[in-house]
């Protein structure tokens, strides 16, 4: 396998008791690619995301994350914060903001370095702490401008609209300085105008910041216009892979989405 790939997922199986959530899933993502994973409800898309970010631990298979500096990391067995620290950021299906904090502080928490134990340093505000703090502030302001929330920096996160919350989550994820950003249904609950903005923003994240995008989405229009390549999951297995045009024409995918007609399967 080449270092061009950022994620390599090989034969991953994830079970919850007797329920098989992911069944022998193998896939890869190239660096800089906008990749989408689609599939009907319960197909295992979010399980895949959670396995990629260390939230779930698959029983079988390997997940390798290749970093730009040439080092690789096996995701399985790592805690979510380790995976995040290595450069994998994500958003959540039901948005999870720190709702009692301002938009600014939400992003700032992402921008700060949470490694090390520096209790004393953090407390005494030495020159280094102050310098880091200023850097986090600058980075936060920059990202808020990037996602178009600069005006809303001082607003409580809870009072943002759905579309704004999605952008806040993207900014917060980007604040951690990731190489890949995983977006779990970013368009859920947004209106058509916001969807358009969102698609534009996601493309800019890749083009201007060079962050690879992995996307789960239900909204076919958004997926087809945004993704360069797609995987289709059904009942925990990959049933198809290809470009949007290929997927649209794939009979297996149509079957999975629309159901089987008796004559066709005969």
């Amino acid at each position: 396998m080449t270092a061009e790939n950022i994620f390599e997922v090989e034969h991953v199986t994830l079970r919850f008791g007797g329920v098989v959530s992911l069944n022998d899933v193998s896939l890869f993502q190239k660096r800089g690619e906008i990749l989408a994973v689609i599939g009907p409800n319960g197909a295992g898309k979010t399980s895949l995301f959670n396995s990629l970010t260390g939230v779930y631990q698959p029983q079988e298979g390997t997940i390798v994350f290749h970093r730009a500096d040439g080092r690789s990391m096996s995701v399985i067995g790592k805690k979510p914060h380790r995976v995040a620290g290595a450069g994998v950021a994500r958003t959540f299906q039901a948005s999870r903001m720190f709702s009692a904090l301002s938009t600014f502080d939400n992003v700032k928490i992402g921008a700060e370095d949470h490694r090390g134990f520096g209790v004393v340093g953090a407390m005494l505000r030495g020159p280094r702490t102050r310098h880091d703090d200023r850097r986090s502030d600058e980075r936060t302001a920059e990202l808020l401008r990037f996602v178009g929330l600069a005006e809303r920096a001082n607003v409580l996160a809870a009072s943002l609209s759905y579309g704004e919350r999605r952008r806040l989550e993207i900014a917060r994820g980007l604040a951690t300085g990731p190489e890949v950003l995983l977006l779990d249904e970013p368009a859920a609950g947004t209106n058509p105008a916001e969807k358009l903005d969102l698609a534009r923003l996601i493309r800019r994240v890749r083009d201007e910041l060079g962050v690879t995008i992995l996307l789960i989405e239900h909204d076919m229009k958004l997926v087809m216009s945004l993704a360069e390549r797609l995987y289709v999951l059904n009942f925990g297995s990959v049933i198809a892979e290809g470009t949007p045009a290929e997927i649209r024409a794939n009979p297996v995918v149509i079957e999975a989405y629309l159901g089987t007609s008796t004559e066709a399967s005969a």
Partner: peptide, 17 residues
């Protein structure tokens, strides 16, 4: 604060709860 408000989100930002 982040852990108190949403531990899962905090973890996704690299915070070791």
């Amino acid at each position: 604060t982040a852990i108190r408000e949403d531990e899962v989100a905090a973890e996704s930002l690299g915070i070791n709860p």
